[in-house]
């Protein structure tokens, strides 16, 4: 991509590329999909209004920072309950042992609960990597923190999550 953020085409390309990962990021923070989408759209509205002041290379961190700030203005979210779809197309479903499938579903539920219970900082980094398939470097850029900090949060997230069995 190249060009001026004030051009509609460039702006819409930016939206196409970054809106979903911003929305997901906000969802990981609060567990409220509607709120996450509203803030995403507000952040992009702000980008459009400030298009003359934001160079293309900074547009992504602009919407993430704006989204983060808008989110801070909202009420605190203490008990985050996340919900997810499952991505897999299991063609060989029929062949699998029902007992095994049940265990798998149970494991998934336990895992999602455990992820919800992580600290916000760990949860966000963990899910950006797992769901949005972002590299540590990309996460670091979006959150404007160091790669080292991302690694640390990731490490601590998995350190907590691996105790999933012993919890119950």
């Amino acid at each position: 991509m190249s060009g001026n953020v004030c051009e509609k085409k460039v702006f819409e390309d930016l939206y196409d590329t970054h809106a979903e990962s911003l929305r997901n990021f906000l969802y990981y923070k609060c567990g409220n999909l509607q709120l996450a989408e509203d803030i995403t759209h507000d952040a992009f509205s702000k980008l459009w209004l400030n298009c003359a002041k934001v160079i293309l290379e900074k547009a992504k961190s602009f919407v993430f920072t704006t989204g983060k700030n808008l989110f801070l203005n909202q009420a605190k979210h203490r008990n985050v309950v996340l919900k997810f779809n499952t991505n897999t197309k299991r063609q060989d479903n029929d062949l699998e042992d029902p007992q095994f499938l049940m265990e798998q579903e149970e494991f998934k539920q336990k895992l999602v609960q455990a992820i919800s219970d992580l600290t916000e900082a760990q949860r966000v980094v963990f899910l950006m990597n797992r769901i949005d398939k972002m590299t540590y470097k990309q996460i670091a850029e979006s959150l404007e923190i160091s790669v080292k900090a991302v690694e640390k949060r990731m490490h601590n997230a998995l350190k907590t999550l691996k105790n999933i069995h012993s919890k119950i």
């Binding site: 819409e12 939206y15 196409d16 809106a19 979903e20 929305r23 997901n24 969802y27 999909l33 989408e37 995403t40 759209h41 507000d42 992009f44 509205s45 459009w48 209004l49 997810f84 779809n85 499952t86 991505n87 897999t88 798998q104 494991f107 998934k108 895992l111 999602v112 992820i115 963990f126 899910l127 797992r130 769901i131 398939k133 998995l158 999550l161 691996k162 999933i164």
Partner: peptide, 27 residues
């Protein structure tokens, strides 16, 4: 197991067309 299961988690896709028209509407 954690890595496999977590990478299969997904959120509903963002309706981008609706989103962009909402932004213009907001503005």
């Amino acid at each position: 197991a954690i890595l496999k299961t977590s990478s299969d988690l997904a959120l509903p896709p963002l309706d981008k067309e609706k989103g962009i028209s909402k932004i213009y509407q907001n503005l």
